[in-house]
């Protein structure tokens, strides 16, 4: 197993956090992992992306140029990365705001209306968790149990009250994938 993932969207959509969570879960499952942010003078509403590698073998280059998985949370991110996906790769995109299909016939594409689903759960901020739920259901890159453990650790004691909402969002994403995407 070797996955190179780009997660991209607006600053404030929890892009970097989603990447860290996935990376941590990969580490807990004994994989080699790396995470690189597109660091810069980022701000809410600007663009943000991160590169994650999860692999059975040692990671030579942590820089991702041809991802096997793209998670696009807004239109510009899809435009920027959709043609770089490796053949037989995956594109997960936010169909709440991206109203077209990805232009890459070699990749499997999955639209998930993460904004509406998150708002349905009462908090638009968990859109990233909905997408992660769909991702792990389709790709099996990490198990939902591990991801939950990583989530619990990341939220810590201070944000423990946010755990159940995030958990619900992950579950909603997985269920959506099972019912609508498979």
């Amino acid at each position: 197993m070797h996955h190179e993932i780009i997660i991209a969207g607006f600053g404030g959509q929890g892009i970097l956090f989603a990447g860290q969570l996935l990376t941590h879960a990969g580490m807990v499952e004994g994989k080699h992992v790396s995470w690189i942010p597109s660091y810069g003078p980022e701000m809410r509403g600007g663009t943000a992306n991160c590169s994650v590698v999860i692999s059975d073998r040692g990671i030579s280059s942590p820089i991702v140029t041809e991802p096997t998985i793209l998670m696009a949370f807004n239109g510009p991110s899809l435009e920027k990365f959709e043609n770089r996906i490796k053949p037989e790769g995956f594109i997960f995109y936010n169909s709440s705001i991206i109203k077209r299909d990805p232009q890459n016939p070699k990749a499997s594409s999955y639209g998930v209306p993460v904004n509406e689903m998150a708002e349905g759960l009462g908090n638009s901020k968990v859109a990233n968790m909905v997408m992660l739920g769909a991702l792990i259901e389709i790709t099996k890159i990490v198990s939902p149990e591990t991801l939950l453990l990583s989530l619990e650790k990341a939220l810590g004691r201070r944000k423990k009250n946010m755990l159940s909402l995030n958990e619900e969002a992950l579950k909603a994403g997985r269920e959506y994938a099972v019912q609508r995407l498979k």
Binding site: Q20, T23, M27, V33, S34, W35, I36, P37, Y39, P62, I63
Partner: peptide
């Protein structure tokens, strides 16, 4: 460099 400084690994 900034890449290593910002990169997360185990």
């Amino acid at each position: 460099d900034g890449l290593l400084g910002q990169m997360m690994e185990p």
